[in-house]
Every structure is written in C-alpha cells, then in structure tokens.
C-alpha cells in the first residue's frame, strides 16, 4: 500500500517529489492543498482529452472494478468467517487469494478515501491503536498464531470491504486516473512487493505482485485500441512486455497460487524486478493518448 494515502489521484504526481523531502504524510496534505492551480490545470486538460472511445473504455473498466469488488467482498466474508471461527488453517489459505481482488483495483480504492489504510495498512504505517485490516490479521495468523480476540477486527474488515463496494458503484473515473493508475500499480510492486515488505509475516508477496500486474493489464486492455491508434509501436511493446512479465512469473506458480517469496533467490528477485521495469517504462508513455 502507499505510504501517503487518502488524496485524490490528481495529487499522486506530487508524491514522487515528496519522497525527496522526507516529509511525513501530514505535510504532504499541506503541500497538496497549496497547489490548487496545478491540480485544476491537469483536471481541465483531462476533461478536454475525453473522447467517446475513452468514455467506453472507462465504462468497461468501471464494470470490471465492480465485479472485482463483488468478489473481494465475497472472499473477505469467507476469510473473516474462518478467522472468527478460530480456524487458522482455513483463514491462512484464504488470506492471499482474497487480497488479490483488492490489489487489482488498488488505485481506485485509494481515490475513495481511507480504504487503503483501513484495509491494507502494514504495521507501523498507521498509529498502533488505529491499525486494522488484512495485515493485522496476517500478523495474528502467522506471527502470533492465535486469532483469539480478533473478532472485532474481522467484523470491521468485512464492513470496510462492503463499504468499498458501495463507493465503487458511483466512483468517477477519468482517463488520467486510468493512465496514472496503471503505472501506480507497477510502482506498488517495485516499491513494496519486490522488496518483500508487503507480506512480512505470510510471505505471500507474489500474490500481490501478480494481482497488481493483472490490474495494470486490465487498464491497458481497455485502453489498448486508443494507444494503438495513437502509437501502434507503443501498444505492441506494452503487450509484449506484459507477456514477458507473465512468463517471468510463471515458474513461481504453485497449485492455485504462488510460492512463498522467501523461496526466491536474489538473482530470481532481480530478474522479476528488471522485467517489471521493462514493462513500466513503456507503460508510463500511455499518457500519449491524452494529448498535449
């Protein structure tokens, strides 16, 4: 999950420069507030860039997001029931697959308020007394190895997931959100999955890795014809790099899921990371469809 969350996607571009300032997330809020000019500028541009073709792409994507969120609620229901029943083995089994639905649509969830910290905060991302969501239960399942007293956390998690489902129904998606969202998903992988920091207790990082990539691929699929119209070479290259990344991930598939991240050697991690960079570079040029 992102370290700064809860701001509209138009402010995402700012977070890259914040990294260098060492600001906390409180300060980043201030920064985004004192920059209304730049934000409105890009909004205007985006509005101008919308076409019937892009509108159709957005509608397709929105439909897919709703489907994913439906599945997310269903999977979270199953997972939290297992937790509440004290069935640690069943809960562990459902944990990583359930999270994948969320990881695929993460940029949308981030644009809808505090869902990302509620559902996906890692220990230390938020003040201890506010920590809830999947990773809190991850720690209980893998580290503490006891789910006693976690019923409230489980209930809250399911409630948050349902609330997300309500919100995605009416989420406003614009072309810029799609374009930046695809790259954001891959940057998520680069910054926390590749390093193995996301799933520090369960080591199921490859599930998140694959889900983020699938989420980016879904965005590319709905934009593919627009990209191909503007720059056929670019569309071809992105498609090829998605295939190559799939191939790079393939050896780590196991049964319905993936091997533990700790089973990967350093050279294997490096190879995955470099395949991801090879995809993210051309993907970051999808903004070409939004015009100058």
């Amino acid at each position: 999950m992102r370290k700064q969350w809860g701001y509209p996607l138009t402010a995402i571009a700012l977070s890259s420069s914040l990294v260098f300032t060492g600001c906390g997330s409180n300060e980043s809020k201030t920064t985004s507030e004192v920059k209304p000019e730049a934000a409105s500028q890009s909004e205007q541009k985006t509005a101008a860039a919308t076409t019937p073709e892009l509108d159709a792409a957005i509608a397709d994507y929105h439909k897919w997001v709703i489907e994913q969120t439906d599945l997310f609620v269903k999977a979270t229901d199953g997972f939290t029931q297992a937790v509440k029943a004290g069935d640690i083995e069943a809960a562990k089994k459902q944990y990583a697959p359930a999270r994948m639905y969320f990881e695929r649509i993460e940029p949308i969830a981030e644009s809808l308020g505090d869902f990302d910290p509620w559902l996906d905060a890692r220990e230390g991302d938020v003040p201890a007394e506010e920590w809830r969501g999947y990773h809190r239960l991850e720690k209980a399942l893998w580290e503490t190895k006891s789910v006693t007293g976690q019923e409230k956390i489980a209930d809250q998690l399911l409630q948050d997931a349902k609330q997300l489902r309500v919100k995605v129904e009416s989420v406003e998606i614009d072309p810029l959100m799609l374009v930046t969202g695809a790259v954001e998903l891959l940057n998520e992988v680069s910054s926390s999955k590749v390093t193995g920091e996301e799933e520090r207790y369960s080591h199921t990082d490859l599930y998140d890795f694959a889900a983020n990539v699938q989420g980016a691929n879904e965005i590319f699929k709905v934009l593919q014809s627009s990209v191909a119209n503007k720059d056929p070479e670019l569309a071809k290259e992105i498609e090829l790099r998605f295939q190559e990344l799939d191939q790079a991930l393939a050896p780590y598939q196991k049964e319905q899921g993936y091997v533990l991240y700790t089973e990967l050697t350093e050279p294997e991690v490096k190879k995955l990371s470099q395949a991801l960079d090879a995809l993210a570079e051309p993907l970051s040029k999808m903004g070409t469809i939004l015009g100058g």
């Binding site: 571009a13 700012l14 890259s16 420069s17 914040l18 260098f20 300032t21 920064t31 004192v34 920059k35 000019e37 730049a38 934000a39 500028q41 890009s42």
Partner: peptide, 16 residues
C-alpha cells in the same frame, strides 16, 4: 512551469 509542476519534482519547489 505549471505544466511541469503537474508532472513532478518542480511541483514542490513551486508549492513551497
């Protein structure tokens, strides 16, 4: 400059 501000790095300079 505004456009650049939208893209990244310089944005903070302008903001601050």
């Amino acid at each position: 400059v505004l456009k650049m501000a939208g893209i990244g790095g310089i944005g903070l300079l302008v903001g601050a």
